[in-house]
Design a binder for these strands. Structure first.
Lengths: 229, 229
DNA sequence: CGGCATCCTCTTTGATACTG
DNA sequence: CAGTATCAAAGAGGATGCCG
């Protein structure tokens, strides 16, 4: 990217991470931790492979990512965030929070990966009963199941399954998000096709007190992918 | 910008404000409030006028900016952030905070506008003596003087002059920042050419308790503006 | 396979000139 | 003042090829 050449901290930051795809690469590394090249490609549907290679090189040069080559037997390269790279989580969080209402818009044929749920869920859910026993919500919304662990007042979202989750949600991402975030009530979500099994009270435990303004899931169908002008 | 077409709040946010120059336009509107086209051009050195017009159109279409045309006698158009646009301040703040250490790098021939100081200063300075009388620091670092008002535990930075500031700083932006942020002590700053007039204690009042890691102003001279590869 | 590099096309940008 | 018009250069997207 061409430098903006301005003595301003925002402009300088954008000089480094303002390129197309760059922040999404950081998103992947933040959510999934150290990743292989092909894992990154999977988490970044639509990126051209030469761009991914370019961006990783740039990020390495800027001290945001390090590349470690595992010894010959396993022969795999891992890309990992440096502390400086991890410091970008506040930027990603702010962006994710600002962008959350946009998930209410038409879903169209947008790509989806289950681990992307981590950001909106950890940002918007809260544990209303910090002293209650830990609980688990299992989500089946994409290719791989995700777990929401609620314990001691914190919410953690990561891939996996549980032998005995308090609730299991199965359905489209927008229905799952809509329900968890409180924009949809249980009956409406069920009516629209979300499968809810288990203890519904656990859902209320994590829902934010103030539901968001933009309603998630209006079941809109209109196609997306802006066609300028 | 082409949509990333991902059902992820970060990607959706970047679909809207990820274009080159877009966040800097928002920066201008956040710092200066409602602005005329030419004011924006002044605050965005390097932007091509067709791009500014394009971006403003896009931002208006996205509901981030509104354009108001004043009645014929004054004949001027004002661009103003909507509440949705103002909500981007958290994103800008996170970016500004992350980018602040980069101001320590080579200054080169980067452009500078005094009002850009608002972000780093309001983010990094604190009022250590909330109960003391209000104080004013006047800064001469660019074309127009800026005032730092310290009162009741808050810091406000805006353009202007004061009849009786507690301190006046005159010098390069990096010296001013370096001193205020605590990376440079008074003697060093003076030795490097910063003019400091008035009550030095007021400076200590606003300086952060933990000085930043990257030292501001190393008086580096190397040119900037990346030349890929 | 995993991790790229090359080649080609298309879109976006940057610089400048011009207009109601 | 607030833009539009034009055009060259840079960057993105997509397909495919290479190499351990």
């Amino acid at each position: 990217m061409r430098s903006y050449d301005q003595y301003c901290s925002v402009a300088r930051a954008l000089d480094v991470i303002g390129d197309r795809w760059t922040l999404l690469i950081v998103r992947e590394l933040l959510i999934r931790g150290p990743s292989r090249y092909t894992d990154l490609q999977y988490g970044l549907p639509g990126i051209a492979t030469n761009l991914l290679a370019d961006r990783l090189r740039d990020l390495e040069a800027e001290g945001i990512v390090t590349k470690e080559v595992a010894p010959p037997p396993v022969a795999t390269t891992l890309f990992r965030l440096t502390p400086r790279g991890e410091a970008l989580d506040s930027v990603l969080a702010a962006l994710g929070r600002w962008g959350a209402p946009l998930l209410a818009g038409p879903t169209g044929d947008a790509a989806f990966r289950s681990h992307w749920l981590k950001f909106p869920l950890e940002l918007h859910l809260t544990d209303q009963q910090p002293d209650a026993a830990p609980a688990t919500i299992e989500i089946h919304a994409g290719a791989q199941p995700m777990l929401v662990r609620v314990a001691d007042g914190t919410i953690r979202v990561h891939p996996g399954t549980s032998p005995d989750p308090e609730v299991t949600l199965t359905g489209t991402p927008s229905l799952v998000l809509g329900l968890l975030v409180g924009a949809l009530d249980v009956d409406t979500a069920r009516a629209r096709g979300l499968k809810i099994e288990g203890d519904v009270a656990t859902l209320r435990r994590v829902q934010p007190l103030i539901p968001p303004t933009g309603k998630v899931d209006r079941s809109a169908k209109a196609g997306r992918s802006k066609v300028k002008r």
